[in-house]
Nucleic acid binder design. Structure first.
Length: 270
DNA sequence: AAATTCTCCTGAAGGC
DNA sequence: TGCCTTCAGGAGAATT
């Protein structure tokens, strides 16, 4: 499930292969994504050059001659650089073909998105109201504290809210709260600024470490099989219900918050 | 405005 | 062994 580190790793992984290249063909085998892929997309994209590949939140943006192509990987999406003759497998929905290679989108659950935008991407409704990047300069404990005042929502839901801060998915929310010693069920408005400083640093470090690990497996973007190694990161609490806390040995507890599974140590996190 | 619920989909895991 | 059921989850949309 692509979280921000995987999207960032994907961004860095594909950029060298597609930047400066001209699209020769676009093949859409399955148009039923989160939003249907319009039939005219291949015609629109063919002949355009890719100027840059960037990321905002978990959205990938391919800057083209006449607009931007937005890609979202949803729950199960992945992008690979392949030889353009590589036969598609089940769930390989879109190929963006360049000279000898293609950028191939695979997404079994089809929660992903492929969207052509002719306005400045940051003005698009999907991107306009997003909070700061967790690895950027606008994100801090002081910022989180300021936004949390009088908010009763659970802190885990608060940091997963993309209007507050982008890119914190279910796995890393649990991990960051463990590092910060904050119980995921605690009301956002009942946390001190000092603890928010620690939480912001935890979010930053957990995402940064995951990106560093992903960076070691960039070559995987040329392969067809095998998942990139960014799942390799040691997760301290996520999915470890009943296992001993790495800090104190108490059993890790699982609860559901906002219809999402959450994991924490009842002793280390208050 | 804020909080909550619903929805999309299919692979994986668990039960019998 | 195999079939059936349940679950997970990003995030926009709808609802309260």
């Amino acid at each position: 499930m692509p979280e921000l580190p995987e999207v960032e790793t994907t961004c860095r992984g594909i950029a060298p292969f597609v930047t400066g290249k001209v699209i020769s063909e676009v093949i859409v085998r399955e148009h039923r994504m989160r939003q249907p892929i319009p039939p005219q997309l291949p015609r629109i994209l063919t002949g355009q050059s890719v100027y840059a590949v960037t990321r905002r939140a978990k959205y990938l943006l391919l800057q083209m001659d006449h607009g931007h192509l937005l890609l979202h990987l949803g729950m199960s999406g992945s992008l690979r650089i392949i030889d353009k003759e590589t036969p598609p497998q089940r769930h390989d929905h879109v190929d963006i073909v360049f000279d000898e290679i293609a950028l191939r989108l695979r997404d079994p659950r089809r929660f992903g998105m492929v969207l052509w935008m002719e306005i400045p991407p940051l003005q698009h409704p999907l991107l306009r109201k997003l909070g700061p990047e967790p690895l950027g300069d606008d994100f801090s404990g002081e910022y989180l504290y300021r936004k949390s005042i009088r908010r009763s929502v659970a802190i885990k839901q608060f940091i997963m809210n993309s209007h507050i801060v982008v890119g914190v998915g279910n796995i890393y929310a649990s991990e960051a709260l463990f590092r910060a010693g904050i119980r995921p069920t605690r009301a956002a408005g009942r946390i001190s600024e000092k603890r928010y400083v620690r939480l912001a640093e935890a979010i930053r470090s957990v995402l940064d470490e995951a990106i560093r690990q992903g960076g070691t497996t960039l070559r995987d973007f040329q392969q067809q099989d095998g998942r990139p190694g960014y799942f390799a990161q040691q997760l301290e609490v996520y999915g470890r219900q009943g296992e001993p806390c790495p800090a104190c040995g108490s059993p890790i507890k699982a609860v559901t918050i906002g219809q999402r599974s959450s994991f924490f140590c009842t002793k280390c996190q208050r």
